[in-house]
Amino acid sequence: MARSTTRRRPAAPAATDGETNPKAPCPCGSGRRYKHCHGSGYGQPVLRPFEGLPGEVDWVALRELVPAATARLTTTEGRSVTLASVLPGGTPALVRANGEILLGVQLQTSSDDVSRDLGTALAAALEAPAGAPVDPGPIGAAGSAGPRLQELLDLSAPFEVTVHDDFEFWLEGADVDATARASLQQANEMVMPTVRLDGLEAAYWCRPTTERGHVRWVRPEPEEALLDALARLGAAEQLSLGEGTRYAGAFRALGLVVPVWDVPGAVPGAEWAGPSAELHSRLEAALAVTEPLDADERRARAGLLSRQVTLR
């Protein structure tokens, strides 16, 4: 009889007294092996870095979805700051000659705590003189000890987003040369048409092509509850935004789920506010249901999960 080529995997090495087996499940309950979790030597990622900030869902949208937008922030000391989706060259912050601070939420690099990265940049900008470059140090470096946004901002101030058609706000009130103007024009040509849907929180329409548009909606609910509600609507054939639309899937971003719908590109973005509001009402009703999912709803949920990805 031929010898079997199947080999038994060696047992994980035993941990010495007082140590955790690196291949054992991490004691924190994450489900990951200890060596890939608390035993990795790195700090654990902050899954929801904007949690606790007013407008958390719109913070995520500006970080992940919206090409050109601004919002007004107020620091704990009463100083006004303009938050921008992105700044020239991906710089994290700048101070204009008139003293106005701009903070960019879309960074070229980031650590496992985006709030601390942005807080570090904001703290440096608050100390920088007017018109001077802001040097926050290496943004995104592991072990950064800078402050978090939650420590620097007035958490009672509202968070209201203004979507722009281009990046002209970069140069507001500034005299620029032909080179800067040409760079701005190049950036403007890359802006995807985007509309924030009136009356809804963090719901954005965009049009990547003339034939196709998307409604992308950052949701605040816990993932499992949201998926159950979406599954209930899917099983009842109530998950679309109307004729010619379909639920395309969802992605996770900074700890929240972002469902996406495909819509006809020829319909102006603002016109999707009504259908989205109707869907919101159906979703709220589905979220209030506490009974277990039935067989059709479980199948719908499995289909939803198959179309879900994680950005971060």
Rank of each mutant, 00 (worst) to 15 (best):
G39N: 02
G39P: 05
G39C: 02
G39A: 04
G39Y: 03
G39F: 03
G39R: 02
S40W: 03
S40L: 01
S40D: 03
G41R: 03
G41H: 09
Y42I: 01
Y42C: 00
Y42Q: 11
G43E: 15
G43M: 05
G43I: 01
G43D: 13
G43N: 04
Q44F: 02
Q44M: 11
Q44P: 00
Q44L: 14
Q44Y: 04
P45C: 07
P45S: 07
P45Q: 04
P45Y: 12
V46M: 10
L47W: 07
L47T: 08
L47C: 00
L47Y: 05
L47D: 10
L47N: 04
R48H: 05
R48Y: 07
R48K: 11
P49H: 10
P49M: 10
F50M: 06
F50T: 02
F50V: 03
E51F: 10
E51D: 14
G52L: 06
G52Q: 07
L53E: 08
P54F: 13
P54G: 03
P54S: 07
P54V: 09
E56A: 12
E56G: 00
V57I: 02
V57Y: 00
D58M: 04
D58L: 00
D58S: 13
D58E: 14
V60Q: 01
V60L: 03
V60T: 07
A61M: 06
A61Q: 08
A61C: 04
A61L: 02
A61W: 04
L62V: 02
L62D: 01
L62E: 00
L62R: 01
L62F: 02
L62P: 01
L62S: 00
E64D: 13
E64M: 08
E64L: 06
E64H: 10
E64P: 00
L65S: 04
L65F: 10
L65K: 05
L65M: 13
V66Q: 09
V66K: 01
V66I: 09
V66Y: 03
V66D: 06
V66N: 08
V66T: 08
P67H: 06
A68Q: 08
A68G: 06
A69N: 10
A69Y: 03
A69M: 08
A69Q: 07
T70E: 14
A71D: 06
A71K: 10
A71E: 05
A71Q: 05
R72C: 08
L73G: 12
L73P: 11
L73H: 12
T74C: 11
T74W: 13
T74A: 14
T74E: 15
T75M: 13
T75N: 14
T75R: 09
T75H: 13
T76C: 12
E77F: 12
E77W: 13
G78C: 13
R79C: 12
R79A: 15
R79V: 15
R79K: 15
R79E: 15
